[in-house]
Write a protein that binds this DNA or RNA. Structure first.
Lengths: 124, 124, 124, 124
DNA sequence: GTGGTCTAGACCACC
DNA sequence: GTGGTCTAGACCACA
């Protein structure tokens, strides 16, 4: 996993997003055991408490669960993962449309460009 | 202008991108005079040399031009701005599609979701 | 407010319960401003971080809300307070019945004793 | 036996309450021999003098009796145990009603909620 | 070893 | 001043 932090967002919330993305995109498999808090913190270059906070939030959201002595695991509830995936997708769409409109493209133009792009890809 | 830098990319190239985005999105108007290198650097919180390097690159690309005595100006060549805008749009589309595919959506699904989103907006 | 901590429960969760009790029982009024995190922590004799954690959890539950620069306030949403009150009551009932049964009283006996107690009070 | 002490009450009186509760609830059987003062103190994590004081008080109340050579025993006088049990029950009822009234419930509401709770249990 | 809790103390943005 | 974030380092229960 590649860790990359922006300076304008709390690290812990970026950890949450990136781990969640890892789960919904399959980098972390359902039911898979995660590295220990300390190891993940070291790998990401953050304090264990910060990583702990991110993981606890993910636990609250049902994305991971912890077993006291044996570690933390990715949820195997595909519905939870599916919902998270959908929320990610909606956010992608939202920010994409916003950026394109900021560039001055109308919604119609955006859709047209995407369909052409799709067609290009079909031809590839 | 809001400046925001990632730690994994050279500052100067991020400056180039953000200023260019400012020009194509209309934050900087065609022909408009830019603030001095020193002022822009201070506002962005970067070293003047770094800002200078970014502006020189933008000059090379024809996005801005300088008049020795009176300062730097945004180009008024709409073709140059248009091309830059198009390249931004293509990059947006490319990274959007990449992110969505990483989430596991097929191109068909992506297109469908976008059309639905467009429809939602039509109804708003 | 009197702070009293048991050793078998995390302090932060006891803080949550006691503050919540203060809100539902009217010690803290709806919309009232709370003391600062630091002051509440000092008063309770705990670390500011621990108090912060408790207040953040209460915020997640909608019992309080924070305004960045001016402090934290008790919610004025009476429904939220009402629900919390009801949950407290149910917990009281549950633990009361458990304790009485542990003493060997049947549910019928418990109910009878309470009705007599009620009557005593009516006569007072 | 699980020992749990609050910081706002003398340890010895809490010892008295908890041992008495153990007797009336059957954790200690009538006539049963108790462990030595030293062992009970160690198990509870208190000073032997403190445990000694608690046991002497229990002896004064007739809950336990000591035989000089063979140790201390739980009383086998069921009337004594019964009275203690009744006092515990009254205390439970008193503190339960106090807590519920502090939450703002009237005596009538409390009784209604308890009857409903009883009914729920009947259905279980 | 694991997760979990707590403290002490720092720095930040906001106003 | 306020809340918020982060780090460093300690201790605990569990098994």
């Amino acid at each position: 996993m590649v860790w990359n932090f922006r300076s304008d967002l709390p690290i812990y919330s970026q950890l949450i997003e990136q781990i969640k993305l890892g789960i919904v995109s399959g980098s972390f498999l359902p039911g898979e055991r995660l590295a220990s808090v300390r190891d993940m913190a070291m790998e990401a270059g953050v304090n264990p408490n910060t990583m702990q906070r991110a993981l606890q939030e993910l636990e609250r959201e049902g994305m991971v669960y912890s077993q006291r002595t044996s570690g933390r695991f990715v949820t195997d509830d595909m519905r939870v993962i599916g919902h998270a995936k959908q929320r990610f997708a909606e956010e992608q769409i939202r920010s994409f449309l916003t950026a394109m409109e900021k560039l001055g493209y109308t919604r119609g133009e955006i859709l047209t460009m995407l369909e052409e792009k799709e067609t290009e890809h079909d031809n590839t």
